[in-house]
Design a protein around this nucleic acid. Sequence first.
DNA 1: TCAGAGGTCTTGCATAGCAAGGTATCTTGC
DNA 2: GCAAGATACCTTGCTATGCAAGACCTCTGA
Lengths: 112, 112
Amino acid sequence: MDGARERITTNIRKGVLEFCVLALLARRDMYGLELAEWLAVRGLTASEGSLYPLLARMRQAGTVETRWVAPEQGHARRYYTITDQGRAHLRLFAGVWREIQPHVDELMAEET
Amino acid sequence: MDGARERITTNIRKGVLEFCVLALLARRDMYGLELAEWLAVRGLTASEGSLYPLLARMRQAGTVETRWVAPEQGHARRYYTITDQGRAHLRLFAGVWREIQPHVDELMAEET
DNA sequence: TCAGAGGTCTTGCATAGCAAGGTATCTTGC
DNA sequence: GCAAGATACCTTGCTATGCAAGACCTCTGA
């Protein structure tokens, strides 16, 4: 009974996290911790422990590319850019989401 | 590149399947294959291979109860009933969904 | 010099969907 | 009667992936 809410949240995130990252990168390039903060604020991820392995998988899959940027002050950052393949993947994702989400919403509508 | 759509679908389902089953049982009692068909038609599950283990887990967790029903004609069926605990779990689920879903929809809205 | 913040990444674990296959019973057609 | 197929239940083994915890490195400021 303890961590029921956490378990639920974790499982929902499992389905949407990669999509959210791609959608964010479609807006503009971002670096790791920047993504992590944006997502954490909205309850879409819990820690960097999920994000960095995901980003590594995406790089390997070719949906994102990266470059190192050393600012005048502060730490060097690895910036992520979405690729054409990433955009195609995002469209695929959006299609599936549009198929499933209405059914879930309909079932949930009966909940107070 | 091949099964990308399947992978996406699978991961989304992972988050919502249990919730959908609970919501269906909140409407009325159903038996295994009946649930499986309802869900498969709407793309919410792929086969009984996900449903039966899930139902067993739910029974063990106390969110559903079951009884055997032998109809005049045809096969004996195990009917599932949602419990008070299951209803509480469903409300929890609906709460998390309402937190996360708008953020995903917002990100997806920018997709054509 | 040393603490802390800002960065990146790894290890090990637990969860859960799925394909494939297994079993048993009921009905239908010959 | 008996074989075939539909109906119904469930299990095994694989794989993917979020997460907690922790490691490491650099920069800044007291």
